[in-house]
């Protein structure tokens, strides 16, 4: 399946907006995590995986979720942040997680369930990175499992569910008429129309 130019630019632009949001979210995260600790601040994790469900839900192509998360992470690199390369690695892990959720359903199902699953799997794969690079394996098992649980729930709500709310609101404004999300919707409505017409 080849990507059209406008789909490529849309994916990049949406990821860039998400990347800018990530940067802002990071500055919010540091003071909060200093007060209530990194485990508790894990509830804010979900926003960092929102790019994948947003872009995949609109464009509905294999690879969309992965590309979105990596591009959003790379915004930090492009803006010259020191965390750039590390953010890129995290983005690759989370992108693989998100992509898996849509791949399981062979890129056929894009509903609240798959979007939330993509948020959850991004949290799981993000935790694999934390184990490898940030030494989370050295924490006690309870701390580790609590953090993972909080991340998964946050990924499902702030990642998956919020992405659906945002995209559905955008669809109402009419700017998404040319993309897969509205095309499929129209196709479905047409099919239903014919059935009732019989």
């Amino acid at each position: 399946m080849t990507w059209k130019m406008k789909e490529i630019v849309l994916a990049v632009v949406l990821s860039v907006i998400c990347g800018v949001i990530y940067l802002g979210w990071s500055t919010l995260w540091i003071p909060i995590s200093a007060v209530i600790g990194p485990v508790g601040a894990g509830f804010m994790f979900g926003i960092w995986v929102i790019a994948s469900p947003i872009v995949a839900y609109i464009i509905r192509k294999p690879g969309a979720a992965f590309v979105a998360e990596v591009t959003a992470a790379a915004v930090e690199l492009f803006t010259g942040s020191h965390f750039g390369l590390a953010a890129l690695l995290v983005g690759i892990f989370q992108g693989i997680g998100s992509e898996t959720a849509f791949a399981i359903f062979r890129y056929k199902r894009y509903n609240l369930f798959t979007l939330m699953l993509s948020g959850a799997l991004a949290a799981v794969f993000g935790m694999i990175y934390n184990l490898l690079a940030k030494g989370f394996g050295y924490y006690s098992t309870e701390v580790l499992l609590t953090t993972l649980g909080i991340h998964i729930i946050s990924g499902m709500i702030l990642g998956g569910w919020l992405a659906k709310v945002v995209v559905d609101t955008l669809a109402k404004t009419g700017v998404l008429e040319q993309y897969a999300i509205m095309k499929e919707k129209r196709k479905k409505e047409d099919a239903n129309g014919h059935v009732s017409g019989l």
């Binding site: 406008k6 849309l10 990049v12 632009v13 907006i17 945002v166």
Partner: peptide
């Protein structure tokens, strides 16, 4: 939402215009 929706809709509109301009210049 009052910040996110206009940001995203403007971004989407802009991306569409950019894509058409890029196609017209053979960048695709």
């Amino acid at each position: 939402l009052s910040y996110a929706v206009p940001m995203f809709t403007q971004g989407i509109r802009k991306s569409e215009r950019i894509a058409i301009a890029m196609e017209a210049r053979g960048l695709s």
